[in-house]
Design a protein around this nucleic acid. Structure first.
Length: 217
DNA sequence: ATCCCGAGGG
DNA sequence: CCCTCTGGAT
């Protein structure tokens, strides 16, 4: 659906209303970056592709106890890794990819996670979304990581009509104050997961509906 | 556009 | 049972 014509000023005001509604709706959503262990964050983020965050969170403690860093993971075979990530699904492919990732990390960067977005994206299994998450949560580089949830909501709310994650992120970052980016990202993910779902959005139960050009009655 | 090749949920 | 799941590579 096409978004209605709207001036920049009106759009920004609407974004502000949306932010306010999200604050009320998700008071527990993250507001600050976590500064996690770069390697473990990278692995967890790669694992989250086509997987539920819940399954990833349950699997990672044991995985990192056994393979705490790139060196340990690079020395493993995919078969050794599989048992630790079985419950995540697609585990065969993921185990292969994870070991390949660790080996590249070890060969090209001495086992460290590079802080550069282009370098991160050159790693196997790492695309724009994963690179953005890692730069943010591991190194404190601000940026809205646009995943399928965020992309869908940004477009439904007519906060962006762009198609690529990069462009959508640009639009969102222009609409919300930088110190709210972390919250906006997390809140949109939660909302996309539970209310504004891909298939049948629950517009009737959505507090954002008054500000949403795409709402269904 | 399609594959990946599975667990968990509605 | 069918479908989804915080993607990335081809």
């Amino acid at each position: 659906m096409a978004c209605p014509k709207e001036g920049e000023k009106a759009k920004k005001a609407r974004a502000s209303e949306i932010l306010k509604a999200l604050k009320a709706l998700y008071p527990g959503a993250r507001t600050e970056l976590k500064h996690e262990n770069p390697f473990q964050l990278l692995v967890a983020t790669v694992l989250s592709a086509q997987a539920t965050d819940k399954s990833v969170n349950e699997a990672t403690p044991a995985l990192f106890a056994r393979f705490p860093d790139a060196k340990a993971l690079a020395a493993a075979t995919p078969e050794e890794v599989e048992p630790y990530i079985r419950k995540i699904g697609l585990y065969r492919t993921k185990a292969r990819n994870l070991v390949a990732l660790a080996r590249r990390l070890l060969e090209d960067y001495g086992g460290e996670v590079p802080r550069d977005k282009e370098a991160l994206m050159r790693l196997p299994g790492v695309g724009w979304k994963t690179a953005t998450v890692v730069l943010g949560a591991a190194f404190g580089v601000p940026g809205i990581a646009v995943d399928t949830h965020v992309a869908r909501l940004a477009r439904r709310l007519c906060l962006s009509e762009a198609r690529t994650p990069e462009k959508i992120a640009e639009d969102l970052e222009a609409l919300f104050p930088k110190d709210h980016w972390v919250f906006v990202h997390h809140a949109l993910v939660l909302h996309g997961r539970y209310v504004c779902t891909a298939r049948r959005p629950r517009c009737g139960a959505c507090p954002l509906a008054p500000h949403c050009p795409s709402r269904q009655v």
